[in-house]
Structures are given as structure tokens and as C-alpha cells.
Design a protein around this nucleic acid. Sequence first.
DNA 1: GTCTATAATCGGATAGAC
DNA 2: GTCTATCCGATTATAGAC
Lengths: 215, 215
Amino acid sequence: MQVKPPKTSIRADNEAAILAAAESVFAEVGFKGATTSEIARRADVPKANLHYYFATKEDLYRIVLQRVLTVWLSAASSMDDNEEPEVALSRYIGMKMDLSRTMPLGSQIWASEIMRGAPMIKDFLETTLKEWVSDHEIVVQRWISDGKIYPVAPKALFFMIWATTQHYADFSTQIAAMNGGAPLSDEEFETARLQVIEMIVRSVVKPPAAPAKTL
Amino acid sequence: MQVKPPKTSIRADNEAAILAAAESVFAEVGFKGATTSEIARRADVPKANLHYYFATKEDLYRIVLQRVLTVWLSAASSMDDNEEPEVALSRYIGMKMDLSRTMPLGSQIWASEIMRGAPMIKDFLETTLKEWVSDHEIVVQRWISDGKIYPVAPKALFFMIWATTQHYADFSTQIAAMNGGAPLSDEEFETARLQVIEMIVRSVVKPPAAPAKTL
DNA sequence: GTCTATAATCGGATAGAC
DNA sequence: GTCTATCCGATTATAGAC
């Protein structure tokens, strides 16, 4: 008994092409704006054929969304609470910037889903995401108590991190327009990545106490 | 000869209702996802009737978009280059936070438009917005030369400001979920507003030189 | 298992009634 | 000037062919 039967090459290829096409269409125009015809066109499969592999547009969307949530979770776990705030924050922010670079479509789909009221991930937001926030608020509070960072509202910090890092994915069109019309090169992105880390870290982490000049 | 003939009350009321409904629908599902039927439904006018007041869906969208751009410009001009960086930045960030609070739909429509590749505001981005950025990069560079702020890439700073402030509009659903399911109250928002200003200012503005303990 | 012809519905827009 | 019946193309989905 084979739990995971090997898919035919045709099926595997078609499903992969459809999922990739779906990701790009959903990222551009959201769930409501997407049409199965456009997805099929980009996947280069006959329009009606798509429904053989994925019964409904909603099924397709759910699968694409699920992958986004999975990726989010992997990044979320990269924030190591046992490190010093500067290290933990730098790693997490850097990881989120990497995600915006390598998987911008996922970020855009997330944004679209939130803007329409998050009908399909409401539960994820209220459970998994909420718990991550609650858990890490405690960490930030401890950093504050230990005098390592300024007294800030933890949520405001998380929102700033999410907003700024995801901006490089969600608003890449606007960023390109500010960059003379071309998307950021690898070098330009790396500079931005370091800048974002540096600014956000400085926004909360106290500088090391300056050694008294005399004593 | 009357340049601006007074609109009948019926026309004025219907147009206003349709525009308000259009704004909310476009904010939720973007241009592509919006349907004239849904807009008409929310405006409480017969579906096909909408087309009497606004010829096409695109016309309606352009008008709504235009208002968003106008508001953006008014906020943009609130950054006074002659002030000290802390004052200028605080005012601009505060103004952007106010906009996110009072006109969240406009922010969401902007985000949607950017995510689909900005077909209708490409020109605005490449001219007006690009010029604002170029002009203000010079200001930030001067602040750096004057030793008032840390050496940061000006664009990275602008993006952080836009991203963080607009996050409170674009991701209000997610923020509400983190807030126990309820949107931020006026008090909670005011706290967030102050936190955002404080963090972003600290991310770039150098603290006043500490007076030497002894000398 | 894979794919296509076609049904059923919804969408944007208009011609013409009031 | 205001509004409605209606057209036509687009869209989702399926029944059934290969």
C-alpha cells in the first residue's frame, strides 16, 4: 500500500505549472479578481482543463495560501528568544527581508487576503499568529525589564518589522519606480536589507552604556 | 452662464453614495475584483443605474484613485524641510498615521493598485512621487552632513515611514485580530501613533550629544 | 487518467422607457 | 434628467468524450 502514489509526470507538471500561475495571478489581483482562465493561460494549459486538477478556484487559492502560512511560520521561528535583542532582532528582520526578496508573491497574497477582511485565514490570525505575538511580547517585555531596549509597545515593534520588511515585496512596483524604473539589483537589495536591520535595531535597542570618560 | 451648475439633490446624493460604496469595494477587492453590482448594492441604487452616473467601472475607479493621490500630496507637503529632523519627521509620520486612521480605504486602494503593477498611477509614481523622493533625499543628506542624523539611505527611511504608517490602514484586520478581535480604540491608536513616531525618530536621529561628565 | 465541448451564471454596459 | 429591461461577453464549473 503506497501512501503517496507517484504522480504521473503529466499531472505533476500540470499541477506545478497551475500552482505557480495561480500564485502570480492571486498576488496581482487577489482572490476575487483572479480568473481561472487567466491562471490557465499563464500555466499554458487549456482553460477548462484546470478544473480537472483543482476542482474550484477556492481550492486552488487555499492551497496557495497554505504555502504562504507555512513559510511565515518558518520565518517566525527564526526569532531566537535566548539571544541578545540585537542579535535576535537582526536575524528575524534579515530573514523577513530574505523572504520578501525570494517569495514576494506570497507576501502580496497575504496582504490581499488581509485587506479583504481575511475570510480564509481569520482562524490562523486569531490562533497561531496571536499566540506568536503573545509569546514574543513577553520576550520584549523581558528585554525592557533588563534595560536592554527602550520601553516600547511590543506590538508596535512587531508591526514595524512586518510592515517594513514586507513593503519590499508588496510595493516592489513603487520601489522600482523610485529606483529609475528597474527592480532593485541584488546589491541594492542587500544594502536595503542592512539599512532596514540597522534602523529597526536602533529604534529599540539601547546603545551600550558609554564608559564614563573619567572616574 | 453658470460654470458649475448646481446638481440636483438626487444626483448629488446618488453620486456621493456610489463613490463611497466604490471606495469601500475597491479597497477590499481591488479594481479587478470589484463588481459594479456590488458597488450599486452598497450604494443602494439599482445595479444598472450606476452606469448612468458613471459610464464605466474604470471611470469610477479613476475618480476614487484621484482623490487618494490628492490626499497623499497634501500629507507629503507636511514635511517641513526647514525644521530640525526630529520635528519634521515627527510631524510627517504623525500626519501619515492620522491619514491611516481617518482614510484607511484610500491607503488600501493605493496598495491594491501598486500590487497589480500600478497600471493607472505609473505616471504619478514616476513623476510626482519620484520628484518628492528626490527632493527630500537632499534634505536627509543635509541632515546627515550636518551630523544631525545617522548616515542612512534616505529611501530606506522613506519606505520605513510609508510602510509602518500605512500598515495601520492596510492591515487593520490583522491588527484587530492581535487586539482581541476589536479595532484599535482611539486611545490605543493614539498610543500606537506615538510609539511609531518615537521609534522611527530614534532609528535615525542622533541623540543630543551628552554633556561631558567632567572637563 | 486526461482533456474538451458546453451548460449555467454573472458581469459590464446600453438602448430606450418614464 | 432619471431609471429599468435587456443584451452580450466573460466566468466558473461540469458532463462526458477520448
